[in-house]
């Protein structure tokens, strides 16, 4: 398959149209369900479209984050028989920067400073930022608002975050922001929920919020529980 065809057929298109994606998106799920895999697939979608991605990983090493990309890209190549995979991988490598922090070491001010270093010196100007591992439960709301401002201050920058919901949220009805994420979900333009569908024994992605109205809430994608890849 050609890269262009893959981009057009990517199931993520339902969530992220090629034109005008949201400024700030949130992927919510319980621990261990596959938030990082979704973020990496969103990042890879951007990278395949020639965009530059800054991956901020909190609590994970560069090596581990890189391994996520490697594994998921390998699965994509195997599933779609993507042409010229080696060249595409080189481009991905060139257009991606991984920034890792310790859990306690991340703050909006630090992120702003790092982003400024990259952009002002023309080292790396990201089109998309994915931030994985923020503990929203312990982060002050002021901090979150400041983080949104940092993203908004960069022209054309889009960001996706992962947010952890609680085990007890499982009774939350379909199509709603889980209770444990309600304190901050309003700061995001689009929010998607990843959960286990008990009947189908499948992972399901549901749009629970979209302020633009471009994506119909309730749109569903399935995830292969073994590979954590979004099924076509």
């Amino acid at each position: 398959m050609r890269k262009e065809d893959f981009i057009a057929k990517n199931p993520l298109r339902i969530l992220i149209p090629e034109t005008g994606p949201k400024r700030m998106g949130l992927v919510m799920a319980r621990a261990g369900l596959g938030k990082t895999a979704i973020l990496v697939q969103i990042a890879l979608d951007s990278l395949l479209r020639g965009k530059r991605v800054l991956h901020v990983s909190i609590g994970h090493s560069i090596e581990k984050t890189r391994a996520w990309y490697y594994d998921i890209f390998r699965d994509i190549v195997a599933a779609s028989t993507l042409e010229e995979a080696a060249g595409i991988q080189e481009d991905i490598h060139r257009n991606r920067l991984i920034m890792t922090f310790k859990e306690a070491g991340f703050s909006s001010a630090k992120f702003e400073e790092r982003l400024h270093d990259l952009v002002s010196q023309n080292i790396f100007r990201p089109d998309c930022v994915v931030v994985d591992g923020i503990d929203f439960a312990t982060m002050e709301r002021d901090e979150l608002e400041a983080l949104r401002k940092v993203i908004e201050a960069q022209e054309g920058l889009h960001a996706w975050f992962s947010g952890r919901c609680h085990r007890d949220d499982s009774h939350t009805s379909e199509g709603e922001v889980p209770e444990s994420c309600r304190g901050y979900a309003d700061l995001f333009d689009i929010a998607i929920l990843l959960r286990m569908d008990p009947e189908q024994k499948n992972l399901v992605l549901t749009v629970v919020k979209d302020t633009s109205g471009a994506t119909k809430p309730g749109n569903i994608l399935h995830l292969d529980p073994a590979t954590l890849m979004i099924n076509p």
């Binding site: 560069i62 920067l97 991984i98 920034m99 890792t100 270093d117 010196q121 080292i123 790396f124």
Partner: peptide, 23 residues
Amino acid sequence: FQGGVMGSLNQRRGIIVGTFEEG
């Protein structure tokens, strides 16, 4: 010195692969 270090590597045709910050 992170900003300066990244700049110096960038000037040398370097690709910044990642940064790891601890304290």
